[in-house]
Amino acid sequence: MASAPSKLYADDVSLLVVLLDTNPFFWSSSPLPFSKFISHVLAFLNTTLRLHQLNQVVVIATGYNCCDYIYDSSSATNQSSGTGMMPAFCSNLLEKLDKFVTRDEQLEKGGQEGGIASSLLSGSLSMALCYIQRIFRSGPLHPHPRILCLHGSPDGPEQYVAIMNAIFSAQRSMVPIDSCYIGAQNSAFLQQASYITGGVYLKPQILDGLFQYLSTVYATDLHSRGSLQLPKSVGVDFRASCFCHKRTIDMGYICSVCLSIFCMHHKKCSTCGSVFGQAQSDVASTSNKRKTPDT
């Protein structure tokens, strides 16, 4: 299935899908208040829309319990005029965001234990890719798509498989995933996502200057990236999560048939059902190290 687009608009027309982390557990403990964060992001979105009349921006909120589209510039009626206080699209977006957060809260069942819970990155990534696939198929002319994850919550190891699948599908349709990580520690998922898809991973040092980071690095269209040097991540955390307990592991067991990863020895693969032989000795069989993603 070749999804590489055949005809495109002018080189620098972009479709930017922004995944916005709205996890309340993260933002309550973040040094950068959410309101400040959102004002940086809105300015950035506005900039992107101003750069080209055909540029398109889609915003997907990544919540704790659900994800949803909260803004799509192609369906917005009025582009240019505003009330004078802020661009017209912002009020629209904020209203939708407000509704989303309330709904996300209602779905919350309680019972969150220890640490900051992760948000549903796998869900919003899949939604973004679905949207992009629809654009690919919509007609002969479409903008260059890219995804930008504005994320702060820690990785949820239980989403490992879903996220990796989304990453590989993005890689196949040649959609770069940029990620801007606002949380405390680096995110292994996003590092891998950007590394594999050829996007940019960056962890801003000064959160107050978020707009400058966004406009300097992430506003660059795919065409210009060919002639510019964007920040490269120094090291990428390639650690995988095991399929049995969803723990992030350094070493583990890999099914020789379907490449599923386990943190301990099993008699049978839980994914494909292959029966494993007896491990010769526990020490010898841990030679299967971490799984490095190919290409």
Binding site: R50, L51, Q53, S215, S224, L228
Partner: peptide, 21 residues
Amino acid sequence: CEAILRSLPPLAKKYVIQMCY
């Protein structure tokens, strides 16, 4: 300003945005 910004080559747009503040 906006129309002129849009008419610029892609790299020039990037520089302007980068230096906007």
